[in-house]
Amino acid sequence: MSNPTLASQEDVVEALGRALTSEEVTRVVAMLTKASELFRLRSGQLFTPGTSTVRLKVNAGTVRLPQSPVTSVESVVDDCGAVIPFTRFDQVLTLHRLSHEFVRVSYSHGSDDVPDLVKVTVAEIAARVLRIDPRAAAGVTQRSTTTGPFTEAETFSAYSVGGQLLLSPDDVAIANSFRAPRTSGTIVMRA
Results as ranks from 00 to 15, higher is better:
residue 74 E to R: 12
residue 6 L to I: 08
residue 29 V to Q: 09
residue 145 T to A: 00
residue 21 T to W: 15
residue 43 S to H: 04
residue 138 A to I: 03
residue 75 S to Q: 13
residue 183 T to K: 07
residue 69 P to A: 07
residue 173 A to H: 06
residue 130 L to S: 06
residue 142 Q to W: 09
residue 142 Q to C: 02
residue 33 T to P: 00
residue 29 V to S: 15
residue 34 K to V: 07
residue 75 S to T: 14
residue 182 R to G: 08
residue 44 G to N: 02
residue 54 V to N: 06
residue 93 L to G: 01
residue 113 D to Y: 08
residue 36 S to G: 09
residue 49 P to T: 03
residue 88 R to K: 13
residue 94 T to M: 10
residue 129 V to R: 10
residue 112 D to F: 11
residue 79 D to V: 08
residue 165 L to N: 06
residue 162 G to V: 02
residue 170 D to V: 05
residue 76 V to T: 07
residue 172 V to G: 01
residue 46 L to W: 04
residue 122 V to A: 05
residue 177 S to G: 14
residue 187 I to P: 06
residue 157 S to W: 02
residue 143 R to C: 05
residue 157 S to E: 02
residue 107 Y to H: 10
residue 56 L to N: 12
residue 83 V to R: 09
residue 55 R to Q: 13
residue 46 L to M: 03
residue 152 E to A: 04
residue 172 V to R: 05
residue 128 R to T: 08
residue 97 R to Y: 11
residue 60 A to Y: 15
residue 150 F to H: 03
residue 97 R to C: 13
residue 26 T to P: 01
residue 65 L to Q: 03
residue 182 R to N: 13
residue 191 A to C: 10
residue 168 S to I: 01
residue 152 E to I: 03
residue 115 P to G: 12
residue 43 S to Y: 00
residue 132 I to W: 05
residue 136 A to N: 03
residue 125 I to P: 00
residue 91 Q to H: 08
residue 25 V to K: 15
residue 87 T to G: 05
residue 146 T to H: 00
residue 125 I to M: 15
residue 27 R to S: 14
residue 53 T to V: 14
residue 2 S to W: 11
residue 57 K to V: 07
residue 77 V to I: 14
residue 70 V to W: 00
residue 59 N to I: 14
residue 129 V to Y: 01
residue 5 T to F: 09
residue 104 R to Y: 06
residue 14 E to Y: 05
residue 51 T to W: 02
residue 105 V to W: 00
residue 143 R to V: 08
residue 21 T to C: 12
residue 127 A to L: 04
residue 171 D to T: 02
residue 101 E to I: 03
residue 182 R to W: 10
residue 110 G to Y: 00
residue 50 G to S: 08
residue 123 A to G: 05
residue 45 Q to F: 00
residue 183 T to V: 11
residue 65 L to I: 07
residue 100 H to L: 03
residue 133 D to V: 04
residue 11 D to H: 07
residue 142 Q to E: 13
residue 178 F to V: 12
residue 161 V to A: 06
residue 100 H to G: 08
residue 108 S to I: 03
residue 77 V to L: 04
residue 39 F to L: 10
residue 169 P to K: 01
residue 171 D to W: 04
residue 156 F to G: 01
residue 11 D to Y: 01
residue 97 R to S: 11
residue 51 T to K: 09
residue 139 G to T: 02
residue 82 A to H: 10
residue 157 S to N: 01
residue 23 E to P: 13
residue 130 L to M: 15
residue 36 S to C: 09
residue 23 E to N: 15
residue 27 R to M: 14
residue 138 A to R: 09
residue 75 S to P: 12
residue 25 V to N: 15
residue 54 V to E: 14
residue 75 S to C: 11
residue 98 L to D: 09
residue 69 P to M: 08
residue 135 R to H: 09
residue 26 T to D: 09
residue 98 L to N: 07
